[in-house]
Each structure stands twice: as structure tokens, then as C-alpha cells.
Amino acid sequence: MMNTKGIVIAGVGGQGSLLASKLLGRVLVNEGYDIKVSEVHGMSQRGGSVITYVRYGDKVYSPVVQSGEADYIISFERIEAARYAYLLKTGGIIITNTQRIDPMPVIMGTADYPEQILEELTAKGVHIEAMDALSLAEQAGSFKAVNIVLMGQLAKHFHIDYDKWIAALEQTVKPKFVELNKKAFALGYQFGN
């Protein structure tokens, strides 16, 4: 029996993490896995730190990923990757956008933005794949496609055919955004090759 795998999608409210989890959910359901996705709606969506959990395997019970249980963390912003790094299991991988979005305490000058935090985690042995997903999204046609760029990078780690990801993408996004998102997905997938 396959152990349950955990994926965490972290970002700032409004960055489109719900669409990323929808795509992931779709592709994993298409593959026949049992799956649970847990997200939080409402207040934290308003520019706050938001987190979505995805768990899949032969039989999934809990919908949440806890300390040391994540195989992958997908982060839409640099320090959000560090905020949730404790969820990563030994040998897990962080895929993060290098974009910086200042949280309110930093904007107000009551806290510092920890510029070197990814380097610090790398020094501790965490495998981090950092990418400027914002630029790639803009290259694809919209800064809003950061979510799909990062999913493209994640897809490289899965034994699921590229075409199946694209099929899931077509099932997930509105028809008029399919081309843009396919481009964003491809750019994410090609990054680091």
C-alpha cells in the first residue's frame, strides 16, 4: 500500500493558490488516487498568509498536513516558504517563487524582511528549488499565472505524463485562459532544465 503523500501550497491571499490546488486535485483524481484537499476561505484570504493542504494515496484520512509530513511545499512568496518549512519531511522539496511581498509589519517598519532565509534553510540541508515565477508568468502573458508556473515546476517531480497535466489544466481553467496557462505551465516545467 502506498503511503499517503502530502503537498502544501503556501502563498499570500489573492495569489491564486485555490486554482493551483484545483489543478493538482484534478490530475490526481484522474490518476485514480484517493485524495483530500483542505483549504481555508474567508478572512485569511484578504492579503494574509494562506495555506492549502493536498494529500493523496491509496486511502487518505486526514485532510491536513502537519509538522514533518509534507513531501513538497509550493510557495508563492519567498518567506511563506520559510514560514511553513516545518511542515516538510526529511528529504522533502520546497519549490518557491522568489517574489517578495512585504507583510504589514514590514511595511510599517516593526519587523524586518528576512532576505537570506532561503539560504539559511539550504544551509540546513533543505532542498529548495527557487525560481522567479513572476517573470515567467509575465512572459506567459499575465503575472496572475504564477500559480501555474510553479505547478509546472512541481510536475517535473511526478511520474505523470505531461499531456495528462495539460488535460487536467484544460479541465480546470476557463477556456479563454487555457492558452496563457499552458504557456505558463510549460515555462515552469522547462525551468532548470
Binding site: 484570504q45 491536513v64 502537519q66 509538522s67 514533518g68 518567506i79 520559510a82 516545518y86 532565509i117
Partner: peptide, 29 residues
């Protein structure tokens, strides 16, 4: 969560890594 229940039963915690530098909170705005 599975973590809080495991803790209550005295089961060992899973290994984790955290950064030493504090990450500033990001409250909703």
C-alpha cells in the same frame, strides 16, 4: 489534527526543520 492527537497520546513527534531567523507574521489586511 493528527499531530495534536498523537501528542496527547504521548507518541513521538515527526522530525522537522525550521529557520532560526524569525519570519514576520502576515496578518490579513
Amino acid at each position: 489534527s493528527q499531530k495534536s492527537i498523537a501528542e496527547a497520546f504521548g507518541l513521538p513527534a515527526k522530525e522537522t526543520i525550521t529557520a532560526d531567523t524569525a519570519v514576520p507574521v502576515r496578518p490579513p489586511v
